[in-house]
Design a protein around this nucleic acid. Structure first.
Length: 380
DNA sequence: TATATTTGACCGTT
DNA sequence: AACGGTCAAATATA
């Protein structure tokens, strides 16, 4: 068992980019070992302020929340994607290289920094795309495994067990000016309404939406939107499936759309109030309290569990400029109501991360071993 | 005219 | 049989 120093204890890693790239790697290795994605967030969120000079923490936080899979992702499901692991390593290595470029680009001893901000964003964008590719590769197989610690067997790979699509719900509180009868406005994705039903016992009908790119790109993401019986300003939104489409937004979106490119319009602070049980660990409340998310069907999801959190990711591509982020500074960092979900790993707190150093047979327990020292190296 | 929405019918599941 | 989800023709809108 080898141990390498976390960047926050390395005196040579003082600049934000080194910190980020190193923590990126720490995350890459750690997520292979962790039984919860919560560690991912706990690692990366403290970095957000470091990126103020060239990347709005808003966008990074949005991207993180959009990109990472539902937090309570179990090791169980992670293990089911082991068949694509070499691809994961390749993509993560690519991300490492891009991060390295970013560091070199913005480092004082490197080339000019006149346009460092936009270039930095582009590079980070590529890094995140690498993440996305890696996770998609992981999700490609996703056979069901009966035990998180059981060796992967062929029968697991060819399991005929029916998969269900990833499903998670949000409660979105909207102000009167940002909602209409068809529900909350633009959430960053392009939806086409294909049905509406009166639901037994509900005051308001349920609207059915599918991704506009369903037929052109085969994107199977859908969502259901329904006003809450208790509070008509609250919409219950259930997302099913992930977006596989390449979103293309208008180059000059209307002003109101620019203000709502994030998943939810943000009501004034005085309108905010808790929407759900505050101690239910399956619900996540963002600091605005206007959005609460609950993840369901985290196991055995179709296409794997690595579903991009369907909240849109304006950071990907060149769709959104930094200053278009609708998040105010005070709204960007999620506040998580369960300490268990986002508690720091003690290793991280002490500044050390353990990395196994050998690769043997591929089994569930080998996930962490695959992240050997040969595959992960520090930048400083 | 093209695209988006509405809405009754249809279908699968329970 | 009831219910929820989807389809597709009719209709509305840009």
């Amino acid at each position: 068992m080898e141990v390498f120093q976390s960047p926050n204890t390395n005196p040579h890693c003082s600049d934000p980019f080194s910190l980020f790239t190193n923590l990126f790697l720490v995350f890459s290795s750690q997520f292979l070992q962790s039984q919860s994605w919560s560690f991912t967030f706990s690692l990366l969120f403290p970095l957000l302020p470091l990126y103020n000079p060239f990347l709005s923490p808003n966008l990074l936080s949005i991207s993180l929340s959009s990109f990472f899979p539902p937090f309570p992702c179990s090791f169980h499901t992670l293990s089911s994607s082991i068949m694509e692991f070499p691809t994961l390593i390749q993509e993560l290595n690519q991300g490492k290289q891009l991060a390295n470029q970013l560091r070199n680009h913005l480092h004082p001893s490197s080339s000019s920094s006149s346009s460092s901000s936009s270039h930095g964003i582009l590079l980070i964008d590529q890094i995140l795309r690498s993440y996305e590719n890696a996770l998609l590769a992981l999700s490609a197989g996703a056979p069901s495994v009966t035990s998180p610690l059981a060796p992967l067997k062929h029968t697991d790979v060819v399991s005929k067990k029916r998969k269900v699509m990833a499903k998670w719900s949000e409660q979105v509180k909207v102000s009167s000016s940002s909602a209409n009868d068809s529900g909350p406005r633009c959430d960053g994705f392009s939806w086409r309404k294909y049905g509406q039903k009166d639901i037994l016992g509900s005051k308001f009908p349920r609207g059915y939406f599918r991704c506009s790119h369903r037929f052109t790109q085969g994107c199977l993401a859908t969502k259901q939107v329904q006003k809450s019986d208790n509070d008509p300003t609250v919409y219950d939104i259930t997302y099913k499936g992930r977006h596989t489409c390449n979103r293309v937004l208008h180059s000059n979106p209307p002003q109101e759309d620019q203000n709502s490119l994030l998943q939810h319009p943000m009501p004034p602070k005085q309108e905010q109030k808790p929407l759900q049980q505050p101690h239910d660990p399956s619900w996540f409340t963002f600091s605005s309290d206007a959005v609460q998310v609950k993840f369901e069907n985290l196991d055995d999801v179709e296409g794997g569990l690595f579903q991009p959190f369907c909240a849109p990711s304006p950071m990907f591509g060149s769709e959104v400029q930094d200053d278009q982020s609708p998040f105010r500074e005070s709204e960007l960092s999620p506040t998580f109501e369960s300490n268990d979900m986002f508690g720091f790993c003690s290793d991280f707190e002490t500044g050390f991360v353990s990395i196994p150093n050998s690769v043997t047979n591929i089994s569930i327990g080998d996930l962490e071993e695959y992240c050997s020292f040969d595959n992960v190296e520090l930048f400083c």
